[in-house]
Design a protein around this nucleic acid. Structure first.
Lengths: 149, 149
DNA sequence: AGCGATTTAATCGCGTACGATTTAAATTCA
DNA sequence: TGAATTTAAATCGTACGCGATTAAATCGCT
């Protein structure tokens, strides 16, 4: 009755089991979350990371690339192309800081500021699909903030 | 004493605050986790998603692309190029299933199976850096599995 | 003032993710 | 049986992430 041994279900090494990995749970949840947002953000003409950048800018608008990167934990090699696309979409402007020409200042355009109104319903729509009670969601979010940071 | 009004800290719309978003906590934690793994996986010659694919294959080796995609929640447009790179690295072989020529069967090579030994210490090394007690890590992992799935 | 060190973005290369489409093989069923 | 449908992978295009490097501006120090 021993299983056929053509497949190598090599003696379960517990430490390496996929379903035991926090990293995989995180990876999967992050991917699924992005898929959940996609249809809503498509309607706004934003990608998921662009949406996060807009959230940051809606909170505070003239910001340097560096400050934005700090807030999002992304560096300029990721942000620069993303911001150029937001600029091409007419949502932000990018100008050198006259006080310090190394810095690039990102500012919401009127269209970028206005887009916030259309984004207002997004969080609620996502919440409904996540399927966690608010208190658990909050606890999960706060626990995630402590992971490897 | 009101703040200067050149910056548009537009009246805090609670629902859109970055620090309130589960999606952003997830996004950040997933990115940070990947950065944590990078130096360890570099030593194994694997990327992070490749490592996850190898975890799945170490559990069960001849698997179709579809079955692997099911396990990882990825589709063939992501997996096919990834698996071709693992094949180029000599860790897996890819062959058409003779029983059903639509299917491609992915099998660990000897080198691929052997790599598991060198991966054995990875989970422990990561655990030390994540900074969560085991019971909290387990609870977090299991909660993540329920998110949007 | 001058010059090396530092800081800030941008650039480049590689490897994902994924929607949309394509190709080929297997299956259904008229 | 054979045409239409379904299924499995591959292909293609777009947009990340990020390590490594580069370029330009500023700072620090004598």
């Amino acid at each position: 009755m021993s299983p056929t041994r053509t497949t190598s279900e090599t003696a379960p090494v517990e430490a390496l089991r996929l379903d035991r990995q926090l990293c995989f749970a995180l990876y999967g949840a992050a991917n699924r979350m992005q898929r959940l947002y996609r249809p809503l953000l498509d309607a706004l003409g934003l990608t998921y990371p662009q949406y996060l950048a807009m959230l940051a800018l809606w909170e505070q608008s003239p910001r340097s690339v560096g400050a934005l990167g700090e807030a999002l934990d992304l560096d300029s090699s990721t942000l620069t192309p993303l911001l150029k696309r937001l600029e091409a979409a007419g949502l932000v402007s990018r100008t050198r800081d006259p006080q310090d020409e190394r810095r690039v200042i990102v500012t919401l355009t009127d269209a970028g500021a206005a887009l916030r109104d259309r984004a207002l319903t997004v969080p609620e729509q996502i919440f409904c699909q996540v399927g966690l009670p608010l208190d658990e969601l909050t606890a999960l979010r706060d626990k995630l903030k402590t992971v490897a940071s």
